[in-house]
Design a protein around this nucleic acid. Sequence first.
DNA 1: GGTTAAATATGATAAATATCATATTTAAAG
DNA 2: CTTTAAATATGATATTTATCATATTTAACC
Lengths: 140, 140
Amino acid sequence: MLSNSLAYAIKALIYIAQNSSETERITLKEISDSTLVPRPYIAKILQALVRGNVLQSVKGPNGGFYFREEGLEINLLQIAHILEGPDKYSNCILSLKECSAESPCPLHSNVGQIRTMFLESLEQITFRRLLQHEKSFDLF
Amino acid sequence: MLSNSLAYAIKALIYIAQNSSETERITLKEISDSTLVPRPYIAKILQALVRGNVLQSVKGPNGGFYFREEGLEINLLQIAHILEGPDKYSNCILSLKECSAESPCPLHSNVGQIRTMFLESLEQITFRRLLQHEKSFDLF
DNA sequence: GGTTAAATATGATAAATATCATATTTAAAG
DNA sequence: CTTTAAATATGATATTTATCATATTTAACC
């Protein structure tokens, strides 16, 4: 439902959101240990998120990752777009050329509608909002 | 959201359900032409569906595919299981070890719930039910 | 300024998915 | 019993996704 990379990214970002600040940076090792995502793999994902202006990173001793203030307003669908490009979740669930309310595909009104709700719910969830829950989930 | 293969399979099965009978079989070429799925690829998928007792096939001239009577009662989730194995859509949306109503993951109550609805809707839709719609969609 | 602890860049390998090609089997029909 | 129109089996190739490894850059601190 979510790609492996996207699920990994979300877990890592939840961890960072809950535990980091500009002065208290989180290292790759800590992220990898607490999400059980292999270090080189999560590294690649986090680099993309830095380029996507979600996270900030600092090299060198005492370096690490932390959330940008604006990053906290980013929602889960935007993360998907950053990691997988914007076209992944567009259009019809059967990928038909023509599919709309006027000429719906056979799944448009049932599964298709729930798919739309799914995308909307990804869009509604920001990391700021996830922060409002109690801290420290197990993320593995 | 659905794998390529699964979307292809559903399109082909809708076409077959709407146009076939035990005496009026549908050929690979016709299926490929009306769904725009490459012939060798849809062939492999249909073979799996024959092995999965959804379709019946007949070789030789005038041969082709048609729906088994029981096949019409099969739902979309079962098709997913036949093509991709049963574990694809199980457990937590973040693939966490522990995730349940008692100890929910951060997405359990929002995205996770919609994911559950999604799976349930796949489960509710049988090909018999899809047949109740008007015939002849464009399936490409 | 040398050491060290961190991210970064790059690319190699592996596994899963998707796609294509070809030879074989089967059954109908003359 | 030969031809022919179909599915079937098998496997080759390509693409995407996931995973791993290694060398480089950066900044802090002594």
